[in-house]
Design a protein around this nucleic acid. Structure first.
Length: 310
DNA sequence: CGCCAGGCTAGCG
DNA sequence: CGCTAGCATGGC
């Protein structure tokens, strides 16, 4: 495997890998020890990325393994390829956190969240895994959403054998579309199983989530809701955590309670209008403020400690 | 046991 | 349009 390191100084505004990968925005990374939300700084995370153009008829098993940990002032990586461009893309290492925080409107809750979890970056997950993982997220806890993605990868994804270790890629649309609803239910998907299957079929037949790119924000959100199991909230998650719409603010139960408590004037009844009001309040990079506030509220304002298991 | 979790769909008025 | 019942599953 190739190896390398990216100094944290090259990440404007800093970087906290554990916060970034365990704050409930990405379900595309695994800890080596199999546990999320536990363990010390310095642990290794890994993911498998497409090694080929997704539009080509790629042969199975063409994925690239990327392993990374934060250690000694840098992001150390090991990979079957040059991981640097992948890490820059997936972890948004070029985002200037200082500038983003500076441009955010003055607000006590946002400022406390930024101060507590400094170094948390948004992610740029691959579109299909992001879409499926947030379809699975409906009425589900963060730890279990992660477990569902692990199971889906193990049951339906390609297998990579590297240095006597076994890694699983997230299943392709074709692989998930070929699964039966019963098989998906056995992965503890519950009533989300038919949603996942039907959406996988749609993507396999050519309607891809990344086709929303280029549309204005609300048009892109409307477009994503064509997928089965995708409403406005899940669409916002895909826009923010995969497609780079940094103004998206997913209105989940935590943010709704924050609106009720801290921004009651932003509650306009409908999702669309409340979304407009809170985006106006949070500024140009509203999605960054949302992600910090979400994690801050979900962890009860604590700086860092073990949260949930599985 | 009841309640809740990064909600959505279908069916109603 | 808006409103709501029903929906699987597991942890506390």
């Amino acid at each position: 495997m190739e190896r390398g390191a990216i100094p944290i100084e090259e990440c404007p505004g800093g970087m906290d890998l554990r916060l970034t990968l365990e704050s409930g925005q990405s379900y595309c990374w695994r800890r080596d020890d199999g546990l999320m939300y536990d363990g010390d700084d310095g642990g290794w995370y890994h993911t498998v990325v497409d090694g080929t153009d997704p539009r080509s008829a790629a042969p199975a098993g063409s994925g690239e393994l990327i392993r990374v940990r934060q250690h000694d002032g840098s992001l150390e990586w090991e990979s079957t390829t040059d991981a640097v461009p992948h890490l820059r893309r997936l972890l948004r290492l070029d985002d200037d956190l200082d500038a983003i925080i500076e441009e955010t409107p003055d607000d006590p809750l946002i400022e406390e969240a930024y101060a507590t979890h400094r170094g948390l970056r948004l992610v740029r997950d691959p579109p299909f895994p992001c879409l499926i993982s947030f379809i699975c997220s409906a009425q589900m806890r963060v730890g279990r959403i992660h477990g569902m993605q692990v199971t889906l990868s193990r049951e339906f994804g390609d297998t990579l054998e590297i240095d006597d270790e076994t890694y699983h890629a997230f299943p392709t649309p074709e692989q998930l579309a070929a699964a039966s609803v019963e098989e998906l239910r056995e992965c503890s998907l519950g009533y989300r199983a038919p949603y996942v299957r039907e959406t996988a079929e749609m993507v396999a037949s050519g309607e891809r989530p990344e086709d929303a790119l280029g549309s204005a924000y609300e048009d892109a959100r409307d477009r994503l809701t064509r997928f089965v199991g995708v409403g406005e909230k899940v669409a916002d998650c895909v826009l923010l955590f995969s497609l780079g719409y940094l103004e998206a603010v997913p209105l989940d139960t935590w943010i709704r309670s924050a609106i009720e408590e801290h921004y009651p004037d932003c509650d306009r009844g409908s999702y669309r209008e409340t979304s407009r009001a809170i985006r106006e309040r949070f500024g140009e990079h509203a999605g960054y403020a949302q992600t910090y506030v979400f994690h801050f509220l979900r962890t009860g304002g604590r700086e860092s400690e073990a949260l949930e298991d599985t």
